[in-house]
């Protein structure tokens, strides 16, 4: 068969596609359970951190998630999540909102009346590394832990803040990230939306 004939071109293209795509499909199938386990662990550990439940390693995290957290949606990891921490019934929700370059997905936990935050975790974000991307840094997330929530939810101090996190837990405000005012405001909007969801979930109980 001539190399430039239509039959050879069609046959070669078909065989080449099958030869290279089949191993990829196999590799994808082979790693699928591991990828799913990674995704589940990312969600479960984020829920635990948002509730403020410490864990030593992935096995410990899964054990604590199974014993302390009660997901109420359909499936084993569907929000809202409930947990009783230090005798206080708490609720966590997963909420996605706009960011500067794409969506930001967060886990937000608070007491079920939505009066005080337990904590927040970032599940997914594509903000500018080193600027908006700093919302995933511990100092930024830690200032939400135990923060009192006002009637209007959470406020943001973008200009007057120290830029290193607001230590006052009673002022219903957090510091934004210096140089990333819009991303910080997007986080505030997502958190306040999540608080409304938590209040609804708490009241619906």
């Amino acid at each position: 068969m001539k190399k430039d004939s239509i039959a050879y071109v069609v046959l070669f293209t078909f065989v080449a596609c099958a030869a290279f795509i089949a191993p990829l499909a196999l590799a994808n199938e082979f790693t699928k359970p591991r990828v799913e386990a990674n995704r589940l662990f990312a969600t479960h550990s984020a829920v635990l951190r948002a509730f403020g439940i410490a864990y030593a390693d992935p096995a410990d995290a899964e054990a604590k998630y199974a014993s302390l957290v009660r997901p109420e949606g359909s499936g084993t990891d569907a929000p809202p999540y409930r947990a009783t921490i230090e005798g206080i019934p708490c609720v966590a929700v997963r909420r996605t909102g706009s960011g500067l370059w794409g969506s930001i997905t967060m886990i937000v936990a608070a007491d079920e009346r939505g009066e005080r935050l337990r904590g927040v975790e970032i599940l997914d974000q594509v903000e500018t590394p080193g600027l908006g991307g700093r919302i995933d840094e511990p100092w930024f997330k830690e200032q939400f832990r135990g923060e009192l929530l006002g009637p209007d939810g959470l406020g943001l101090d973008q200009s007057g803040g120290s830029g290193k996190g607001d230590p006052d837990k009673e002022n219903a405000r957090v510091d934004g990230v210096t140089g990333a005012s819009r991303t910080s405001d997007f986080v505030r909007i997502i958190v306040n939306g999540a608080i409304a969801e938590i209040k609804a979930a708490g009241g619906a109980k």
Binding site: K3, D4, Y8, V9, F12, T13, A16, C17, F20
Partner: peptide
């Protein structure tokens, strides 16, 4: 083995 007509397609595939 690669026919000239589909050379670049095969390069992208590989």
């Amino acid at each position: 083995l690669i026919p000239r007509k589909v050379r670049m397609i095969v390069q992208v595939l590989v």
